[in-house]
């Protein structure tokens, strides 16, 4: 901004604003003040022209620029998510679970009653990853993802930051897409944290060698690591699908804790439904049913049909709830 004009305005300001109006001088002074304004108005076009060059991109490079801008917002969103103390705490907690399981197994061993998968960990550290994921994928991982997803829009609305993001303008569809990506990345991070923690704990505490799959086939260790990747990726997609459910819930309210609770209750509710035998026909349509299908990667051959079906269910959930989130958020009045 021009320093000359700053000088000008500071000198005239006290005259217009701070001097009490006196008979006979007030009108003239005000006239002068308005005159100033219109003079300044004349210089406006110049200021705007400078503005376009200084801070804002040219419109000509709109499409690559738009992609870069979206990446920047995604980066900002991720930075926010992974800098937030609450989220860091959840990731640390998740990372602790495989360690705790490993220590418990090492300390107490296992007897005849324990499932084979548990005893297998003692024989092969790599199995700890699968064991940890199978234990966490039903509640703790969905909980972590539900917190981030339920908080995504409702939290911003509650804090009032949503109105500033939208006037920035982040764009509603764009912001929602960025939030969805953020939730997906957090879901992947959460699964990866469990997998990596499981791998490291397993490597440190137990012998590592060729992996016995559920089908009884034994595969080399690298194949086992590959399967860890598949399992992690599959679980992350499942968590992302839940994340979009949470995102949709999050657009419905301004109370983040309500959105988080609703998301987690959805998970628990659908697990209860899935556990009732009489409601068996409903099971294939529940999100929770398919989370544990990652064990398809531990069969020989890999149960691509079951996992593929799971991925389709995840995609269907993501599509429907993503659309609901968009339908709600793109037209919602932001009154917070």
């Amino acid at each position: 901004m021009s320093t000359v004009e700053t000088e000008n305005s500071t000198s005239s300001a006290p005259t217009a604003a701070d001097t009490p109006p006196e008979p006979g001088t007030g009108t003239a002074t005000r006239g002068a003040a308005i005159g100033d304004a219109s003079v300044a108005g004349g210089a406006r076009s110049g200021a705007v022209a400078r503005a376009a060059g200084a801070g804002h991109r040219d419109r000509s490079d709109a499409s690559p620029g738009a992609a870069r801008a979206v990446l920047r917002l995604v980066g900002s969103e991720l930075g926010l998510t992974f800098r937030r103390p609450r989220n860091i705490a959840m990731l640390i907690l998740l990372a602790c679970v495989p360690v705790v399981i490993g220590v418990a197994l090492k300390a107490f061993g296992s007897d005849e009653e324990t499932p084979a998968i548990v005893t297998q960990v003692a024989g092969n550290g790599l199995m700890l990853t699968f064991l940890s994921l199978s234990m966490l994928v039903q509640l703790l991982l969905p909980l972590a993802v539900g917190v981030v997803a339920g908080d995504s829009i409702a939290g911003e609305a509650n804090a009032g930051t949503l109105r500033y993001l939208l006037t920035a303008p982040a764009g509603r569809t764009r912001l929602l897409a960025v939030k969805a990506v953020n939730i997906g990345v957090f879901g992947l991070a959460a699964c990866a944290v469990v997998a990596v923690s499981g791998l490291i704990t397993g490597l440190v505490m137990f012998p590592v060698g060729p992996v016995t799959l559920l089908s009884g086939t034994t595969v080399p260790i690298m194949d086992g690591v590959l399967r860890v990747l598949i399992v992690t990726g599959y679980s992350a997609v499942g968590m992302a699908a839940l994340g979009l459910v949470g995102l949709a819930v999050s657009t419905l309210t301004e109370v983040p804790i309500g959105a988080v609770a609703a998301t987690v209750v959805t998970v628990v509710f659908s697990q209860v439904i899935g556990a009732i035998p009489q409601l068996g026909p409903v099971r294939p349509y529940l999100l929770t049913t398919w989370w544990s299908s990652f064990d398809g990667a531990l069969r020989d051959p890999i149960a691509t049909d079951v996992m593929g079906q799971g991925l389709l269910v995840f995609a269907a959930y993501a599509l429907v709830f993503g659309a609901i989130a968009w339908g709600r958020f793109s037209g919602r009045d932001i009154t917070s």
Binding site: A316, L319, V320, A323, I324, G327
Partner: peptide, 21 residues
């Protein structure tokens, strides 16, 4: 109209999924 269009999208998504199933 904008509101109608917006809600048409989730409805369409639901129909697509339902139809696929």
């Amino acid at each position: 109209r904008a509101r109608a269009v917006r809600w048409a999208v989730p409805v369409a998504a639901f129909v697509v999924v339902g139809a696929a199933v």
